[in-house]
Structures are given as structure tokens and as C-alpha cells.
Amino acid sequence: MNQVSVLAQNIPVESSAEAPLLEVRDFSLRRKKATVLDRITLSLNPGETLGLIGESGAGKSTLAMALIGLLRAPEVEIEGSLRFRGTELTALKEADFRRLRGNKIGLIFQDATAALNPCFTVGKQIAEPLRRHLGLSASACRARAVELMQSVGIPEPRLRLDAYPHELSGGMQQRVMIAIALACNPELLLADEPTSALDVTIQAQIMELILDRVRALNSSAIFVLHDLALGAQVCDRIAVMYAGQIVEEGPSECVLNAPLHPYTQGLKSCVVELGMPTLTPIPGQIPPLDAMPNGCRFAPRCPKAQAICGEQRPEAHTRDERQVACWFID
């Protein structure tokens, strides 16, 4: 851990303890008129971990990509605000945003095999953010890359430095990915289903590793997961997403033990009944983006739906520390 603290001193601390590290307010994202993210609001304090939970297609990856600025394209329409350390990301120039990527904001991809360039050694790929953002010399990069590989549990890092991705196992590749994402001690780590492409036997191990590193660096993290129970176990807070909206958000224990939104309740009962997560726990599926219901987007699948649900969109209520978007909260 000593090498970590040495580097941490170089990073200016701009955020005071009380101010949230990340504040997302009424953030919407449209692709070809289809609303992929609809008025997302959430905030994350320094050192806090948030789990984004939801079925496939809910918009979790899209939100993560938007946060690291990889969806800044003419065909992607954006509205609302993303504040990171007090900086408005949506107004940031590309050159300035680039300085955050891989530096203050790290991203772990779902499939490390696909996310590592097959033509470059892992040492080179770990060194890239070090050179770009910290301006380390080639030899310092190598030394630091070895330290990083050690910190993510890669045995014999000096030998592995010059290995190509295909020479490593899936688990080792994901460890490399983690080392890259954490290379510059990011204040915010985004992990998009970091273990779902891995063998079940090492999933827990890799998850534990990421959590360890996040705690050691005192970073905040957003974990994209589709398992509510795992999310609640791993994260301080949980945000449940459905069809591009956050339907419920709050402290993990509350959301898991006393879910208020019918969708969260459905997710939970499925976990309890089957003892394991499934991809579509609730009958039916997310409606296609171009055929979203006008009212509550969950209405077609909701066991508690009433007439109003089909007509008017439920606004998010705040209850204690939670926000819930449903007309009928028990």
C-alpha cells in the first residue's frame, strides 16, 4: 500500500468532505429520438460505493459510458447535468474531459478479453495512462506498472509485463483491466459488470479485489450489476434502474430488506425464491425504446398497476434517505 500513498499526495484534493463527488441531476440521453436515459438523478459522496442494478437493456452501461464521456457524439442528445468534483461534465471541452478519463475517472469493462488490445503487451497498456496523465518516464512507467500488477494480485509481474493479452487467462486479463483503471488512483471508478464474463469460480475473488483496491485508494465507485443481493452486499447505496429510469434509490440495506418499488420487490422475490439471480426475474420484458408507455414505464409488467399508471409518469418521491418513483408506495 505504500506506493499508493506516495502517489496519492500528488493529487490535489479539491472536493471538501461534505460536497458530493458526483452529482447527476435530471440527466437524459436520447439516441435517434429514443430516450435511453430519462431524468436520472443521483449523487455519490467521496469514498461511497453505488450499485446500479437492473435488467439488461435498462441503460446501466449507457449511464456509465456517459459519465466517462464516451458518448459525446452528434447523434447522442444530452440534457441535464453531470457534476464531478464541482465541474460540469456536459459543458467540458473534449480536451479537458480527456484529462479526466483514465485519470480521475477509471472504467473497468465487462469483457477484459475484448477490451485489451491484442497487439500490445499488457505492460504497454498499463503504462499508457501513467505516461499520459502522470507524465512518468518510460522506466518509471514500467516500475509503476509492476507495482500495479502486484497490487491486483498478478504473480510474477515482471515477467507478465511483456506478455500479450492472449497469453493470460481471463481472470488475469480482468486483473490487468483493473490495474489500468486504477493506474492513476481515480476518484471515481466505474465497473460495468466486472465479473460477469468470468468463470463463476473466480467471480467473488475479482469482486473482492476491486472492493479492496477501491477502499485502499479511498475512491468512490459505481458498480453495474444485475444481481440485487450482490449489489446490496457490495455497495453502500443501490440505484435500481428500469427502462432508462431510476425507479428506486437508497441505502443498500433499506432497498434490499424493504423495497418500496414494485420492480425492486420483483427483483428481490426472485432472488429469494430461486436463491440465484436470473436475467428476467419478472414476467415480460422492458418495452422497446420506440414504444415506451407514456405513464409509468413499468406499468405493462406491474402487478400493482392502476389506471393512473398508464396515463401519468410517477415523479420520484423522497422518503427518508430514499427516492422512489411509483404512484402507490405501501
Binding site: 483514465g102 477509471g106 469493462f109 475484448a114 477490451a115 488490445n117 495512462p129 499520459r132
Partner: peptide, 26 residues
């Protein structure tokens, strides 16, 4: 369109390097 290109961008690599180094090498 490959994920490793997105990953290079996520590391803060500038656009020209993403195309001419990470892309063209492949």
C-alpha cells in the same frame, strides 16, 4: 467498433492515437 478502442479512449488516449496507433495496428 471493438471494445479495446473504447477502452483506449477510456484511458484518456487522444483521438489521433486511438485511430493511428490502437486502430491501425490492428
Amino acid at each position: 467498433g471493438q471494445p479495446y478502442i473504447l477502452a483506449a479512449k477510456a484511458r484518456g488516449e487522444p483521438g489521433w492515437r486511438v485511430v493511428w496507433v490502437h486502430g491501425m495496428r490492428n
